[in-house]
């Protein structure tokens, strides 16, 4: 192992490690938002989870990274790095979940106030925007920003549009929105700068349930126009 960038440790299997805090270790792969990277991330989450390491409290993914939060009385950064470097992960060992959850969406009208603008800006009809949005199967890369906010991969490039120039102070929960090459659903009322094209009644986060969200990284969803 060699020291490359300040604080980083380069492993033997393409993973860079960073001692993030006394009780957290960051794993990082080359920057990518791809489906292939998602599979690499997921294979590692599955493998680390299945080892059931005492004191590994939380495993939190990003696009090309994983943070492991651990109990310092049973683990060190080094002991975890050693375990992860020993993992034998190949494409074959990562099994992909092919189930698709359908999320019903009411597009346009009062609940999708930006649909017309989006269509006009992109030179499409409203029906075309809806079709492109609903025809895609989206990967859930990870959950962040807000509790239950799904970072989705796979938006059709034709639906790539910059953020609104004036963000809304309150976007209602359930709003389906897009901007900057991404699409998502606001799980709770929050400020937001994305274009709202519809609304779903599907509850994405409910802290009275455990787990509070039906989704985890690696799952797939598709929107359906109702």
């Amino acid at each position: 192992m060699t020291l490359l960038r300040e604080g980083w440790i380069t492993g033997q299997k393409g993973i860079d490690y960073f001692r993030y805090s006394a009780y957290s270790l960051l794993l990082e792969w080359p920057a990518s938002m791809s489906h292939d990277m998602l599979q690499v991330i997921n294979a590692h989450i599955q493998a680390i989870t299945s080892l059931d390491i005492t004191g590994v409290n939380e495993i939190v993914p990003g696009y090309h990274s994983i943070m492991i939060y651990f109990d310092t009385s049973t683990n060190t950064h080094e002991s975890l790095i050693d375990i992860i470097e020993e993992l034998n992960i190949t494409k074959a060992t990562s099994h992909e979940n092919s189930d698709i959850t359908i999320i019903e969406v009411t597009y346009g009208g009062a609940v999708g106030p930006d649909l017309a603008t989006v269509a006009e800006t992109l030179g499409l009809t409203e029906s075309e925007v809806i079709a492109l949005h609903a025809d895609t199967v989206y990967d859930i890369h990870f959950i962040g920003f807000l509790p239950g906010f799904l970072y989705l991969g796979g938006l059709d490039k034709k639906l790539s549009i910059p953020r609104r120039s004036n963000p809304r102070t309150k976007v209602p929960a359930g709003s389906v929105a897009l901007a900057a090459g991404q699409t998502g659903v606001y799980p709770s009322d929050s400020p937001g700068g994305w274009h709202i094209i519809g609304k779903t009644d599907h509850q994405l986060f409910n802290p009275s349930n455990d787990p509070p969200c039906d989704f985890t990284s690696g799952m797939k969803i598709q929107f359906k126009s109702i």
Partner: peptide
């Protein structure tokens, strides 16, 4: 609240 950060929970 520990153990729910993977659901985006602070």
């Amino acid at each position: 609240r520990e153990g729910y950060q993977n659901y985006g929970t602070p």
